[in-house]
Amino acid sequence: MELKDFNIPFTGLKEGKHQFEYQIDNSFFKLFDFDEFNETAIKATLEFHKKATMLELTFNAIGTVNVNCDLTNEPYEQPIESNLDLIVQFGNEYNDENEEILIVTHGEYEINVAQYIYEMIVLAMPSKRIHPGIEDGTLESEILEKLEELQPGTGKKETEEETDPRWNTLKKLLTDNK
């Protein structure tokens, strides 16, 4: 897989809607030096609507990404479903500062959509990756057991004697001022 596989030569396309499909795997993410996914199986589709003065692109991605849990480091399948809309307009100079509008120069004849597919998939990942077995209690892991064991406040409440004696002096100052 190469970046040029994601070039769409729009000058040769008739006005109207066109469909493009891409099977995304780990080789795609290697193009971007991104190695956080163990395995990737995503189908990305692009509805490419060519109009007289602009292009409307609608990206969709659905599939799974195998990643390691942030808590236990256990691998699991993270479902991915995402979409992205992009309008391509023609102007005097290239401008990609707006995330929803891309301006390409009038002489341009093709557009590479790889960066948009990459961003759509990476941004669809949850910020905290938690194995579904943790949430439903089915995951058995040594790391998870150790985390539960070391969790603060596991039933034992602090009593007055366990409090640092220096706090008592501070509490006395509070009560003396009233």
Rank of each mutant, 00 (worst) to 15 (best):
T169Y: 13
E149C: 09
Y22P: 00
E56L: 13
G137W: 01
N73M: 07
G107Y: 15
E145I: 07
I134N: 08
P126H: 12
L57N: 00
N92R: 13
S27A: 15
D164G: 09
Y118I: 08
Y94D: 12
A61Y: 07
F48I: 05
I62S: 11
R166C: 04
K4T: 08
E140S: 06
L174E: 12
H49E: 13
I121H: 02
E148N: 14
A114R: 01
E93H: 13
E100D: 15
G12E: 08
Q89L: 14
L71S: 04
G133Q: 03
E99C: 08
P165K: 06
H49F: 04
F10R: 03
Y76F: 14
E100T: 15
E160M: 03
S127D: 14
I134M: 07
I121Q: 01
F90S: 11
E162F: 05
T138F: 04
H106M: 10
L3N: 05
P152F: 04
V104S: 09
E100L: 14
D96K: 10
Q115H: 12
Q151P: 00
L173N: 04
V88L: 06
I80Q: 01
K146S: 10
I24P: 00
S141L: 01
T53A: 13
Y76L: 03
E56R: 12
H106C: 09
P165Y: 09
E47D: 15
I80N: 00
H106L: 11
G107D: 14
N68R: 10
H131E: 01
I103E: 06
E97Y: 14
D5M: 06
Q19N: 15
N66I: 06
E149D: 14
N60M: 09
D5V: 07
K43A: 11
T72V: 03
W167R: 05
M1C: 06
A41F: 07
F37K: 06
Q23K: 14
D96Q: 12
Y94T: 14
E81W: 10
E39P: 08
K172M: 04
E140K: 08
E15D: 14
C69A: 03
D85R: 12
K157H: 05
